[in-house]
Computed example of a mutant assay.
Amino acid sequence: MRLAVAKEIEVGERRVALVPDTVARLVKQGIEVLVEAGAGESAFFTNTDYETAGAKIINDTDTLWQEADILLKVGIPKEREDGRLEIDLLREGAVIVSFLNPLGEPAIAQRLAQKQITALSMEMIPRTTRAQSMDALSSQASIAGYKAVLIAAAALPKYFPMLTTAAGTIAPAKVFIMGAGVAGLQAIATARRLGAVVEAFDIRPAVKEEVQSLGAKFVEVQLNEDTVADGGYAKEVSEAAKQRTQEVVAEHIKQSDVVITTAQVPGKKAPLLVTEDMVVNMKPGSVIVDLAAEQGGNCACTEPGKDVQRNGVTIIGPINLPSSMPVHASQLYSKNLSSLVQLLIKDGNLDINFADDIVSAACITHAGEIRNQRVKEALATLSSATAG
Rank of each mutant, 00 (worst) to 15 (best):
L112H: 02
A113S: 11
Q114R: 14
Q114W: 02
Q116E: 14
Q116M: 13
Q116K: 15
Q116P: 00
Q116R: 15
I117A: 06
I117W: 12
T118D: 02
T118P: 12
T118V: 10
S121D: 03
S121V: 06
M122W: 03
M122V: 01
E123Y: 03
M124N: 11
P126N: 06
R127L: 11
R127M: 12
T129F: 03
T129C: 09
T129V: 08
T129D: 05
R130P: 03
A131S: 14
A131V: 05
A131L: 07
S133P: 04
M134T: 01
M134S: 07
A136S: 14
L137E: 04
S139G: 06
S142V: 07
I143A: 08
I143M: 12
A144P: 11
A144N: 05
G145R: 07
Y146V: 00
Y146G: 01
A148F: 09
V149P: 09
L150T: 01
I151Y: 09
I151C: 04
I151R: 02
A152T: 13
A152Y: 10
A153N: 09
A153D: 07
A153V: 03
A155W: 03
L156G: 11
Y159F: 15
F160N: 04
F160I: 10
F160W: 07
P161T: 06
M162F: 00
M162W: 00
M162S: 06
L163G: 00
T164L: 12
T165L: 12
T165I: 08
T165W: 02
